[in-house]
Amino acid sequence: MQRRAAAIYVAFFLVVGAASFSLIATASAPQLSFENPEHELGQGDSFTLNGQEYTVSGISAEMEGGDGGGHGGGGQAHLVRSGTIEFTNESARYTVEWANGSTVTYEGTDWAVTTDNASSSVTLVESIDRAAILQNDTDVENETTTVDGTEYVVERAGDNGSRNLIPVDEYFPEPDTREYEVGDEVDNIENNTATVDSVTPEAATLTYTAPRTNEISVADKAQVTVGSTQYFAYFPDNSTMVLSTNFETYEQYQDETAMQTRMTNGLWGITILSGVSAVFLIGLAYLPSRY
């Protein structure tokens, strides 16, 4: 091949490759933006939906992936934004279960639980800490004794060396007993008044209503349900949460992004092919001629 002709072709391919590369370098990525979104919020901001107040309790931006650690392990690091919305249900339903045969702590005292399905009742019998009572009484031994099948508390020997045996039923206080039926109210359950909702052979179930704080996790460029409304969530920066019902805007953004990706890949193909062609032509131009 004549070197002059080769130089012309090489110059052509270099110009084409440079032009395609310049298009790649100067092309701007599609920008996602919403006109008049329903909510544009910062941390601590609130909005009301169907009578319920919602508050943005947190917005975070963390780097993930890359060699520097993060949650994603290796690969290129990228910024991940997310947020949290809180709301309080003022009349949430709570349940407390007292299992049959168990010991529960109520009003600072331990109680043995017995349920009676036939009468739909639950009985609490105070648990007497016999060991603690004996240890606190210096006039008796720390352990009881059993004589002829009867359990006694042993009074310490006096000056005459004699010891008295006191029947445990006479020494220890009679345990308090409380009985509740289905529909009865029980005070001081988690600082609330509960109602005995049901009684089975396995357990008694108590219910009460009280405020409950709930959290909604919000991911970037994802759908989130707040109340009965579905929003598209977007974080344009590290301190702003956008909620919009205009899902068509994001779909259009995805289409534009996909189109740009295809165009960029095509331009890279032209750039690489032009460079390879130029190198190939230079090689051919310097091949020795047989004539």
Rank of each mutant, 00 (worst) to 15 (best):
A61Y: 00
E62G: 00
G42W: 04
E38L: 10
N89T: 14
F12N: 05
V16A: 15
D67F: 09
G44T: 11
G68F: 09
E40C: 00
F34D: 02
Y9M: 12
E90G: 01
L49D: 04
G17V: 02
D45F: 09
F87Q: 04
L14T: 02
E53W: 06
E62V: 12
V15Q: 06
A99L: 14
T95D: 12
L41K: 05
T84C: 03
F13Y: 10
H78F: 10
G51F: 10
E62W: 02
Q43A: 13
Q31S: 15
A19H: 13
A5F: 09
G65L: 03
E38C: 07
E64H: 10
S82M: 05
Q43G: 06
F12S: 00
E35M: 08
A11E: 09
N89P: 06
M63G: 07
F12G: 01
V15T: 13
F21C: 06
A61Q: 08
H78K: 13
H39A: 04
H39T: 02
A29D: 15
E35V: 09
T55R: 15
G75N: 11
L41C: 06
F34A: 03
Q76N: 14
A77S: 15
S57G: 11
A77V: 01
H78E: 11
G73A: 11
I8G: 01
S60E: 10
E64N: 11
G70A: 09
A25D: 13
E64G: 03
Y9D: 08
E53P: 01
A27L: 04
F21A: 13
N89M: 11
E38N: 14
H39I: 06
S33Q: 14
G58H: 07
L79K: 15
G69K: 13
A92I: 04
A61V: 05
A7Y: 01
G68M: 10
I85F: 02
T88I: 14
F47D: 03
F87N: 05
T88P: 01
I59Y: 00
F87T: 00
S82L: 04
A25F: 07
A29I: 07
G51L: 08
V80R: 08
G69S: 14
Q43M: 09
Q52G: 00
F87G: 00
G69V: 13
